[in-house]
Amino acid sequence: MRVLVGPDSGAATEEAGLAELYAVPRTPWLRVNMVGTVDGAATGETGTSGSINNAVDKQVFDHLRAAADVIVVGAGTARAEGYHVADRPLVIVSRRGDVPEQLQDAPAGAVLMATCEAAERVDRAREVLGADQVLVLGSHRVDLPLLKQVLADRGWANQLCEGGPHLLRDLLAAGVADELCTTTVPRLVAGEHPRITQGPPLDVPLRLHLLLEAEGTLLARWLTGVPAVL
């Protein structure tokens, strides 16, 4: 894996070097990690990101998970990608309060639900996950800035979001995401596929902090908002 842009440009890096290259400058810090093809598809033939990612993407994906205190993901993505209990808390974001079926038997405290007062299934979520694991934030939609703070207050300051595209768009619109990590795999898939952001238009300027390359796969760290000292 070569560093194209960033510290030690032109140098090779191994797993030990990823910790330094992907270190967060402050906390709380919310990064979003997404994968896409050269022609912009966020999913492949199976309708999941798993059908387009590769071993290089998996290496950084695993590192970001290991470095995070908590994983945040939209309910639709958790359902489509077949999410299961992770080795750190998993927070499902859902305006309906709908816990994906495969997570309903999770051990106590392993899965949390972030939802809103208008959620039609919030009572069921409390039954499944426990009242303490259901975060009601906002009236008709999830208050994402508040979610970031609530997670930090629980001691989960290094926060990793794994999408999906609608949640990424909403995090950017709310000014909550500090960083976007992208993997661009060297493939073209054509067809009808979502991009890494979906929803109403927005315009968010990004600053490239890091660009890695391995076997034609490009991995980038894009920073949002006020520049951080890295």
Rank of each mutant, 00 (worst) to 15 (best):
D62L: 07
C181T: 09
D8R: 15
V85A: 12
S49L: 04
T224H: 03
L230R: 10
P165Y: 00
R121A: 08
H193A: 12
H140Y: 11
A42N: 10
D39F: 11
G155N: 02
V111H: 08
A119I: 13
S51F: 15
L208V: 05
L218G: 02
V32D: 01
L146V: 07
N158H: 11
S51W: 14
R31H: 00
E15I: 09
A23E: 06
G74N: 05
E117S: 14
V189F: 11
G44Q: 11
A23I: 12
I92N: 07
A220Y: 07
L202K: 14
C116R: 02
N53E: 07
Q159P: 12
L4K: 09
L168N: 01
A41I: 03
A11G: 05
N53L: 10
A118S: 15
V3Y: 05
V38I: 12
A177D: 03
Q102W: 06
E192C: 08
E45N: 06
E20G: 00
H166W: 01
L112F: 14
T217D: 01
L135W: 00
L188V: 13
R95E: 11
G47C: 09
E192Y: 07
L137P: 15
L168M: 05
G76R: 09
E101K: 08
W222M: 13
D143T: 05
L18R: 04
V32T: 12
A190K: 02
N53A: 00
V176S: 00
R207P: 14
A110V: 00
L135V: 05
V128P: 06
A108Q: 11
V226G: 09
T217L: 07
